[in-house]
Design a protein around this nucleic acid. Structure first.
Lengths: 94, 94
DNA sequence: CAGAATGTTATCAAATATGATAACATTAGT
DNA sequence: ACTAATGTTATCATATTTGATAACATTCTG
């Protein structure tokens, strides 16, 4: 199954205890997880990025960028994204 | 109990169904609720804004501004804020 | 395969968040 | 009431997000 440039063993290596990538990965994890939930909701409802964008009042390219997880979205953007899929985000501190 | 410039009856008025303020209020509600949870956690642990700021790597004035709810914070800021209080934010789509 | 639909990436401008600092206001402790 | 601690507000500089557009890539469907 050689598809990407790195193997899962190499990923394990990069994410080991002492790795500096580890901290970075842990830092970004909550973002990725939340985005994953939103993408999942969109796919589940078979809504296109273009449709979602229209509901949010933005453009499809911005949805793609958002789903790519390449930046740190604002709370408002997240709430609107969820709302466009008929969902409400709830937050809890644990 | 005349303290503020507006009465609660007036507030009710402003938040009635058709009011344009209503939508605005509803829009900001999730932000305020999340911030309230964070403020509550900070007070509960008797941590000062200055202490929290130091843990987050910022300044106390910025914590005050954040708690005032006057702007739209980023996901990362929220996560760091919670983390500085030993909490983890969890998100769920409903 | 061809065309249409969907998703991605790059880029720019404008708006906004964020950090830092300082001055000020409020509250708590003695 | 005095003082120290805590919280607030204003302001500036810098970084980042966000929206828009266009070109490109990928996937779906007939």
């Amino acid at each position: 199954m050689r598809r990407a440039g790195i193997s899962s063993a190499e990923i394990d290596m990069m994410l080991n205890e002492d790795s500096e990538y580890k901290a970075e990965y842990e830092r970004l994890k909550p973002r990725y997880e939340l985005i994953a939930q939103i993408i999942h909701a969109r796919n589940e409802q078979k809504i296109t990025q273009a449709e979602m964008a229209e509901r949010m009042g933005t453009k499809k390219s911005n949805i793609s960028r958002f789903e790519s997880g390449t930046y740190n979205p604002s709370l408002d953007f997240l709430i609107r994204a969820a709302a466009s899929l008929g969902k409400k985000i709830s937050f809890s501190l644990e």
